[in-house]
Amino acid sequence: MNINQTGDFELLKQLANDDEKAFDQLFVSYYPGLIRFCKSLLNSSNGDAEDLVQDVFFKLWESRKSLSVHTALNSFLYTSVKNKVNDHFRKKKTKAFVPIDSIEERSTDSFYAPDQQLMYKELDWDIHQMITLLPDRTELVFRMNRHDHLSYEEISNILGISIHSVKTHMYRAIKFLKENFRYYNSPS
């Protein structure tokens, strides 16, 4: 039903045949999303995220011959990162990660004042920078869906939030991007 999933199947077959190109493609397309996700779980940016995500891909390459993935590859990778982070916390004997919904959000006032927020961007403006202006977890949910093709249900499972919250994040993101995109592209 999903083009992405038949693509995954092919990709895994190529991996098992030592196809480094396929591996590179997989890495480059999922790395940014997984790093963002990993950082949101660690709640810090001290370089641990880079190491943990690298470990996940390292293991993927090492076990490419024997790998059996029952879910979609995107959801498999996200879950692997999540498990890796749990291990990491267990080793460090610290408390498990902060639930994503308790991370403080930027105030909605600044969120909905794009004209002031973005004026200074002028020439450099582009929609990818606009995505970074979304509240952190809205950005995370949006990118998981838009870039890594995870379904609402998968996102809800991975992040441990309700499908309803996932939908709200998605809706807010699209609305924000659409309105500002029109604002900056309308002939004045």
Partner: peptide, 11 residues
């Protein structure tokens, strides 16, 4: 994403 390619070289 530039970071991904650098990270890939490292891996």
């Amino acid at each position: 994403n530039e970071e991904s390619t650098i990270a890939l070289t490292r891996l």
